[in-house]
Structures are given as structure tokens and as C-alpha cells.
């Protein structure tokens, strides 16, 4: 199952901020992490991550710095800022509100829950 593009786009800010809140990272590693976390169901076109990163940087949620990778290439690393953490809390509240609302609707409909494990991490 591939997620709807609009949903992917809408969740991108929260996801990137949450990943960077764990530790500073760079484009390729962030994408890898997204793939792991979503068990491959959230497919981003790789290049599209970068405009997102640049937007978050412009908004002051993250900071970029050029460093050197383990194999000696120049690499741009991103780290979350204090403003970014505040924003992350806000995003989390909003997603929780969406989540709770949807849960209420699902239970009211009393549909059978989706089949299969939700997270297939570590396989």
C-alpha cells in the first residue's frame, strides 16, 4: 500500500523534524529513516526532500551546516533548532487531534480494523 501523495506531503514537516529531533542528520540518511519508520509504505521521491529541508531552514526550524562525510565528501548536515522543537510539539498536537478525530469516526462506523501488522520493523 502506497500512501496518498497529499498525506505524504502533509506529514513531511513533522516527520523530518521528529527525525532531526533524535539526532542531526543529512538528506540521504533522513530518507532512509523515513523508509524504515514507514516500512517502505511512505515513498518520497528522493530529490523532493531537499526543497522541504530548505523550506524548514528558511522558517528557522532547522539549521544547516556543511561538514565532511566519512568518505571525505562535503556533506550538508541538518540539526533541529529550539524553534523547530516548539514547532514539533505543535505539529504533534495537531496530528494527535486528527488521529483522535479519525479514531472516533472509525469506532462509530465499527468497521473491522485493517488486517496485517501495522509495523514490520526489524524484518
Amino acid at each position: 500500500m502506497d500512501l496518498n501523495k497529499d498525506l505524504v506531503a502533509a506529514s513531511s514537516t513533522s516527520l523530518v523534524l521528529a527525525i532531526l529531533a533524535q539526532e542531526e542528520s543529512y538528506g540521504y540518511a533522513i530518507l532512509k529513516r523515513v523508509r524504515e519508520l514507514s516500512a517502505g509504505r511512505m515513498e518520497w521521491t528522493d530529490g523532493m526532500l531537499y526543497p522541504v529541508l530548505h523550506r524548514l531552514e528558511r522558517l528557522g526550524y532547522i539549521e544547516a551546516q556543511w561538514g565532511v562525510s566519512e568518505c571525505g565528501r562535503r556533506r550538508k548536515y541538518y540539526a533541529i533548532t529550539a524553534r523547530g522543537r516548539t514547532q514539533l510539539v505543535e505539529e504533534r498536537k495537531q496530528w494527535q487531534a486528527v488521529d483522535e478525530t479519525l479514531r472516533g469516526v472509525w469506532s462509530a462506523l465499527s468497521l473491522p480494523p485493517p488486517v496485517g501488522p501495522l509495523v514490520s520493523q526489524g524484518t
Binding site: T45, D46, G47, M48, Y50, P51, H54, R55
Partner: peptide, 17 residues
């Protein structure tokens, strides 16, 4: 291929910058 269509990518960059 994974990086994506360059026209689309360029448009995204243009929107941001």
C-alpha cells in the same frame, strides 16, 4: 531515477527559492 524528474524537482526548488 530515485532523485526524481528534474523538471518537477526544479519547479519545487523554484517555489522555495
Amino acid at each position: 531515477k530515485r532523485i526524481g524528474n528534474l523538471d518537477k524537482l526544479s519547479r519545487e526548488f523554484a517555489r522555495e527559492h
